[in-house]
Design a protein around this nucleic acid. Structure first.
Length: 216
DNA sequence: ACCGGGATGTTCT
DNA sequence: GAACATCCCGGTG
């Protein structure tokens, strides 16, 4: 098995066939979509990475969600149609990417937090010079955006039609039968940090913080 | 391994 | 003016 610290297989030339997920896949509660996004594949051109860590953000019922206080210029895409990519800028230097879920106008989404790099690792390394190991190329929400070159220009991209060259596809790998579930990362106390809305693939390379919550 | 602090700028109070 | 869905580096044990 491939552990967080082990070497990734040399897959830069692996052939990979994926079918983009449908609009209806996203048109559901993000807490249902999130665990099913595990083991799907984010693809942009030659670059591809398997989704191994996600978090659900639940709009008006979720103080941790950007959409909690309603629509603003920044979060407008979150209120768009399901299947759009919501990219936001944070901490003065990072971008993070979400898949918009639910019905249009709901303001719910799934944050992509970690990927196992599959293909196009050379390009990722150029954009992530600080990454010491290949497993850390995409092991965080801002890291994966950097590795895939996802910035402002990709806010509102359609993951179903691939209008801007980014899709989430299915290569036939099923989601894990028993994903690890924990609370979400980086939320202040009382701002939705108590909800167990983070899911990741046990033992997968690219999980940002594998040992949260008493994992043995 | 685990912590602490700094970088950097947009958004909202 | 504070907060921020983060990351990296350099300290210490």
């Amino acid at each position: 098995m491939t552990g967080p610290g082990s070497t990734l297989p040399a897959v830069d030339d692996t052939q990979l066939t994926t079918e983009p997920l449908s609009r209806s896949f996203y048109r559901r509660d993000p807490r249902a979509v999130a665990p099913e996004l595990l083991n799907k594949v984010l693809v942009r051109g030659r670059r591809a990475g398997r989704i191994v860590e996600v978090e659900a953000y639940c709009g008006s019922i979720d103080p941790g969600s950007h959409a909690f206080r309603g629509r603003t210029n920044r979060n407008a895409t979150m209120f768009g149609r399901p299947g759009l990519l919501y990219v936001y800028f944070t901490y003065g230097m990072h971008f993070c990417a979400n898949a918009v879920c639910g019905e249009e106008g709901e303001g719910v989404a799934v944050l992509l937090r970690g990927l196992t790099p599959l293909r196009g690792l050379g390009q990722m390394r150029k954009l992530r010079p600080a990454a010491r190991r290949d497993a850390d190329l995409c092991s965080g929400p801002a890291k994966l955006c950097a590795a895939f070159g996802l910035g402002r220009a990709f806010d509102g991209a359609d993951l179903v039609t691939g209008d801007r060259g980014v899709v989430i596809g299915d290569d036939g790998t099923p989601p894990p039968a028993q994903p690890v579930v924990t609370t979400r990362i980086g939320l202040a106390a009382g701002r939705g940090d108590e909800h167990p809305w983070r899911w990741y693939v046990a033992g997968a390379a690219g999980v940002s913080r594998a040992r949260q919550l008493g994992l043995t």
